[in-house]
C-alpha cells in the first residue's frame, strides 16, 4: 500500500467527476422529457389521469432517492433484468426528476394568467395551440430559474449512485480513500469539485431570476 495522494489519484477523481456530469445530464434530459409528460398529465382535462399522475408524484416525492435506487438496481435484478449501474442510476434519477420537474413546471404553467388562455381561446385557437403558442413560452421564462436550481439538486444527488457501484465522483473518492486513508483530504477535494460544478449553476439561476424580476416589473 503506497501512502500519499498523487496526481494520478487526482486524474481518477476528475474522471469520476466526468461521470457525475454524464449521469446528471442523462438524468436531466430523460427526466425532463418524462417531467414534461407528467406536467401535461397534471393539467389534463381528464380528472382520472390527473389523479393517477398525482399519486405517482406523491409516491416519488415521498420516497428517498436511495430507496428508489435500491428498488431499481436490486429489485429488478430479481426478475433477471440485467442492470448496468449507469442504467440503474439513470433510471432512478429519471423517475426522481420527472416527479419534481413535472410539479415545478405545472406551477409555472398555472402561473401564466388565465386571461391569456381565455384570450387565445376566444381567437378560436385549440387547447393545444393555446398551450404551445401562448402558455408554454411564457411558462418557460418563469420556469428557467427554478429548473436550473433543481439541476443543482440533481447533480448532488448523483452521489447516491455510488452505492450501486457506479464510479462517479463520490465513488471514485471512496476508492482512493480505501487505499490512501486520507479521508479529509480526498473527500475535501471531492467536495470542492462538486462545488466547482454547482456554484456556477447557482449563480446562473440567481442571474436568471433577477432578469425575470426586472422584465416583470417593466411589463
Amino acid at each position: 500500500m503506497n501512502g500519499g495522494f498523487s496526481l494520478y489519484y487526482f486524474y481518477y477523481l476528475l474522471e469520476g467527476m466526468g461521470w457525475t456530469v454524464v449521469l446528471s445530464a442523462l438524468a436531466f434530459v430523460v427526466g425532463g422529457a418524462a417531467g414534461f409528460i407528467v406536467m401535461l398529465a397534471r393539467i389534463s382535462r381528464s380528472a382520472a389521469l390527473r389523479r393517477l399522475v398525482f399519486v405517482y408524484v406523491q409516491i416519488v416525492q415521498g420516497t428517498p432517492l436511495l430507496i428508489i435506487l435500491f428498488v431499481v438496481y436490486f429489485g429488478l435484478g430479481i426478475f433477471g433484468v440485467e442492470m448496468p449501474p449507469l442504467f440503474a442510476a439513470g433510471l432512478s434519477l429519471m423517475i426522481y426528476c420527472s416527479a419534481f420537474l413535472g410539479e415545478i413546471w405545472r406551477g409555472c404553467v398555472e402561473a401564466v394568467p388565465r386571461t391569456q388562455t381565455e384570450a387565445a381561446e376566444c381567437l378560436a385557437l385549440t387547447r393545444w395551440q393555446t398551450l404551445r403558442d401562448v402558455v408554454l413560452p411564457q411558462a418557460a421564462r418563469i420556469a428557467t430559474p427554478p429548473t436550473v436550481g433543481f439541476l443543482v439538486q440533481v447533480l448532488k444527488s448523483t452521489s447516491l449512485a455510488s452505492v450501486v457501484g457506479f464510479v462517479e465522483l463520490t465513488r471514485a473518492a471512496q476508492v482512493i480513500n480505501n487505499s490512501t486513508f486520507q479521508p479529509f483530504l480526498i473527500f475535501g477535494i471531492a467536495g470542492l469539485l462538486y462545488f466547482a460544478l454547482c456554484y456556477p449553476l447557482s449563480i446562473w439561476s440567481r442571474a436568471l431570476e433577477r432578469r425575470l424580476n426586472v422584465s416583470r416589473r417593466q411589463a
Binding site: 386571461t115 391569456q116 381565455e118 384570450a119 387565445a120 376566444c122 381567437l123 378560436a124 401562448v134 411564457q138
Partner: peptide, 15 residues
C-alpha cells in the same frame, strides 16, 4: 369564436 371577436378590459395581448 371565429364569428365573434371580443376585446377585454385588460387587453390580454400576448407579452
Amino acid at each position: 369564436r371565429q364569428d365573434v371577436g371580443i376585446v377585454f378590459q385588460s387587453y390580454n395581448l400576448f407579452p
